[in-house]
Each structure stands twice: as C-alpha cells, then as structure tokens.
Design a binder for these strands. Structure first.
Length: 121
DNA sequence: ACAATGACATAAG
DNA sequence: GCTTATGCCATTG
C-alpha cells in the first residue's frame, strides 16, 4: 500500500459531508478511469474506524455495491442518511444532487504535494 | 512473472 | 429494470 490505495484514501477524505462519489469518479481523478475496481478494493481493505469516509463512495448507479458478507449495506446507508443524504424508493441516491463535484487540479496538486510531506493528512 | 481476486463500469439480452 | 457477460486495473500469493 504505497501508492494507489493511499491515493484513493487521500481523495476519499476530500469528499465533503453530505456528498457522495462513485468508484469510477475516484479512479478518474487519479488518472485511471478504468480502475474503478481497484478503488473499490482499496476501500474494502479499509478498517471501519479509519479516517476515510468510505461510506461516501458508491457505485455509478447511486447504490451501495457491498456484496461482501463482512460488510453490509445497511450500516453504510445509515451513515449516508445521517449525513443528510436521502435514498430513493429503489434504495438509491440521486447522483444528480449528491454527486461530489470532484477535486480541482490546483487542489489535487496540493494534495499530492502534502503527500510527500506527511502521509496522514 | 503468472494466475487469481474484487465494495466497479458498461453493453447487451 | 434486472441479469449476464466482458473489459480494466492494481494488489497479492
């Protein structure tokens, strides 16, 4: 875990409260629009008490992708609802409304810059 | 280096 | 809208 995972975590931390991002979006921000799977995997390996808002990352359909028994979708949905995110009748969020705008290049630049200085935040 | 894995994405039936 | 099949990419054994 020296690069991509760390990058995913770093970007995920930038997701503002009450906002969500898709795996593909995170991957795209990292320059790998096809690495959505890897992004999901990175979040999967994340502990629950980590400082990364992994629950704000969902699939492109605005749904919880969790298929693992180890991780249930219910707690994640509860977290999102607690942040003000409203789920539709199909248990999916309105990406048109809650989708994170993403990071601007200047912000990303600063993000990578701070990465070399401290790996925490 | 090869094969397998996985919280995805997209296209097609 | 849901299910199935294929592609993609980084990590791990």
């Amino acid at each position: 875990m020296s690069s991509f995972f760390q990058q995913v975590y770093r970007v995920a931390r930038q997701i503002p409260l009450g906002r969500v991002a898709t795996y593909g979006q995170i991957a795209a921000l990292l320059g790998q629009p096809r690495a959505a799977r890897t992004v999901g995997w990175a979040l999967h390996a994340l502990p629950e008490d980590c400082d990364v808002p992994w629950h704000r990352v969902i699939n492109a359909q605005g749904r919880i992708s969790t298929s693992c028994k180890e991780h249930d979708a219910d707690p994640q949905r509860a977290r999102l609802e607690a942040e003000g995110i409203v789920f539709g009748p199909d248990d999916r969020v309105d990406l048109r409304v809650y989708r994170w705008a993403g990071l601007t290049w200047p912000e990303m630049d600063e993000l990578w810059r701070s990465e070399g200085e401290s790996d925490l935040d």
